[in-house]
Amino acid sequence: MAILDILVYPDPRLRKVAKPVQSVDDNIRQLVRDMLETMYDAEGIGLAATQVDVHKQVIVMDLSETRDNPLVLINPQIVEQDGEQEYDEGCLSIPEYYAPVKRAESVKITALNPEGEIFDLQADGLLAVCIQHEMDHLKGKVFVDYLSRLKQDRVRKKLLKRQRAPAA
């Protein structure tokens, strides 16, 4: 197992579009394990492969307080969505920044699990937010794309400054 490096906005590699996984094999299972470890280490609740510079449609999540209830989505697709909610989102690729984003209140998805089996999932509330947030990453999108130009510029500048002067 290994902790992977998480790309930080505005890294252009966050813009790459992930390809579907052709076969769920040991390589993919290894990637899933590494991504989970990386997510737990960063104290996140969701991570997309794009964020660790692997451009395959793989997502890991864990919304539990106890951090022992991982959810893995491979090649996820939204088949239904409904309603609207607003939530203060944050992202492991955009450290220490939060902003409200409007998304569907509930989604129904299909995906593959690490054994390569297909399953359905009906999600609402935070789980639905997190799924939509991570699926955006696979399309090369980040949550600040939904904000005003002004806010996007502010975040970009702040993070560029941080990268130049780390641990200041």
Binding site: E43, G44, I45, D88, G90, L92, Y98
Partner: peptide, 8 residues
Amino acid sequence: MARKLNTR
């Protein structure tokens, strides 16, 4: 996604 923002 980063963990929930804690207002407290």
